[in-house]
Design a protein around this nucleic acid. Structure first.
Lengths: 339, 339
DNA sequence: CTGAAAGCGCTTACAG
DNA sequence: CTGAAAGCGCTTACAG
């Protein structure tokens, strides 16, 4: 269990490992990296010695010498939304299987923060980048292009872009919500949204376009707030809806937590859902299926988006020629009791 | 906007920065790090050049040369519990203010995973560690001790330990739940828990001890499941409670999502809450205050735990002599309609 | 206040 | 299959 003197870092070095294993440092290095040319017996001795002294190669030295790190960077706008947690977990599972560390950056829906996070993380020489959405600032776009590090964008799809993207059409999801409400016989629709990020806005536009142009309905009532989405805010929105727009009979909530809060507030006020008003949420958070009434929602394939984005990025990192750069994973309408 | 030739990494180096600024590399290095001895005029030129070529020091080289990284490691058991998200955000805010990157490791409630995460992250030479709970495996404890990197444990408090910990007494929180139910006139209590991590177990023990020894009640019914806590599971628990233990009139749910699911299931079955049964949850998740009926819960100071743990760690990193190594931040009983 | 030398702990070519 | 040399891009002492 004891070990020889170590560096300032207090951790054993490759030289010490090599001495204990009785090989040269370069052979120890190769054995640790699993280079196949190493004699199996020597490799065995190296691994044994490594286990004994608990050797793990210094990341900084390895990265500096090889100019390759074992990390990928994932930039997301929020950690408080389960949407991104599920995505992150899926990315992590794939990357971990390849021995890659995932560096998580939360830019709190602020383009400037996204830019400076990326600047800082680029100093780690990540092997790849996974970004949220397609609306990075021009300066951020330039930073990515100049870094020549492969990047995959998730959650949204660009029509005719060279960017690699994995997600679904936000506008189509909005349109599907409008169509569903119309099928339920609703004609006075409302769109309720907080946290007005680009994807929220696209969904809202898809919803309104479908309601008017495709379904021939009156222009939907639109209630928005720049605050982050929350259950509390959903309750306030329902109150406003009932008081200011009593004609509304079908509502699309931009995120399930808003719909959940609205459902609670409706129950409190004795407003019958869905008979008085149909409600549909977005993302299909785990709680939604259990509410009373159970919330109709649009399920987003967040884990699959993460997994697919990660796999796609690995192919880019490996230099494989990737056929498609635009992967549409769709979404699923979960019809339940609230609509 | 154009810049000179660069290294294999494609990024500008200190040497290039120095040449553009017309100073020696070492002066450029000092200027970038804000070393005060540098002539202001030279520093200005360096910063101007850095902005021009978008220079950010190579992390690997800096870490290797100085044996100091700009990172701290935070190990948490789950990302799917808002508890840890809030804590993480608070840690991040403090560390970011000090220019430190937060490396997040999720060990999914598995001690082995915690160990190997730590092993890997130690290779990054973090300045400090923040760990969840106090029950790391012995091997993990040794790894931490040998690394000589300052560590702070959060969420739980050890009675007579040398470890730095920031949190509250889980057993006391359990006892507070029992006391509250007894004050509500409840005498046939139940403890319902999933995800049996050490803190959950401590809370359960505190609850049972208080119920029997302090309050003189019958031994509580205990329903547990090793699965992760979820709303769906809460519903199942309520069904079991009603069918198998109809005498129970007061329930402590180990986490709010269980209580939320139970509340929905009770509503669905027409079981009146709280008249037929008092319910209290744990953590006080944002949705709980909005339910019908509003859920009584124990609010944990998760953001403050994160912030306090981070500040405490910074003091340890700075080598300040820290008086107390055990910071009790308490908890708060939020009495609402469900109890 | 500034700089030349040495070195952090690895890996990459290049020989053998 | 193995190794000696050089170097990755910085910072740390040490001089001046």
């Amino acid at each position: 269990m004891s070990r020889g003197a170590s560096r300032a870092t207090g951790r054993p070095t490759l030289v010490e490992l090599a001495r204990i294993a009785g090989v040269s440092p370069i052979t120890a290095s190769r054995a640790m990296r699993g280079v196949p040319s190493v004699d199996p017996e020597l490799a065995r001795r190296v691994h044994e010695a490594a286990a004994e002294i608990d050797y793990v190669a210094n990341t900084a030295a390895r990265t500096l010498a090889s100019s390759y790190s074992d990390s990928v960077v994932v930039l997301i706008p929020s950690l408080s939304n389960l949407l991104f947690i599920d995505t992150l977990e899926a990315i992590h599972a794939v990357m971990h299987g390849r021995g890659l560390e995932v560096l998580i950056g939360n830019f709190h829906y602020a383009g400037e923060a996204e830019h400076s996070l990326l600047r800082n993380y680029l100093a780690y020489q990540p092997r790849g980048l996974i970004l949220t959405g397609l609306s990075q600032m021009p300066a951020t776009r330039r930073l990515i292009a100049r870094s020549r590090i492969p990047a995959v964008h998730m959650m949204d799809l660009a029509p005719g872009t060279e960017q690699h993207c994995v997600g679904f059409s936000q506008a189509d999801a909005g349109a599907a919500a409008a169509r569903h409400l119309a099928e339920r016989g609703r004609s006075r629709l409302a769109y309720v949204a907080a946290q007005l990020d680009p994807r929220t806005i696209e969904r809202g536009e898809g919803f309104q376009r479908a309601a008017q142009a495709d379904l021939g309905l009156a222009a939907p009532v639109v209630l928005t707030d720049e605050q982050p989405s929350s259950v509390a805010l959903g309750g306030h929105f329902l109150a406003r809806l009932v008081e200011e727009h009593p004609e509304v009979d079908g509502v699309f909530f931009n995120n399930d937590d808003l719909a959940q809060g609205a459902l609670f507030e409706a129950q409190r006020r004795g407003i019958a859902i869905p008979s008085r008003m149909s409600m549909i949420g977005f993302n299909d958070l785990p709680l939604s299926a259990h509410m009373v009434p159970r919330l109709t929602s649009i399920r987003t394939p967040r884990a699959r988006i993460g997994e697919t984005a990660a796999r796609h990025l690995l192919r880019l990192i490996d230099g494989e020629s990737v056929s498609s750069c635009r992967l549409d994973l769709g979404f699923e309408l979960m019809v339940r009791e609230s609509s």
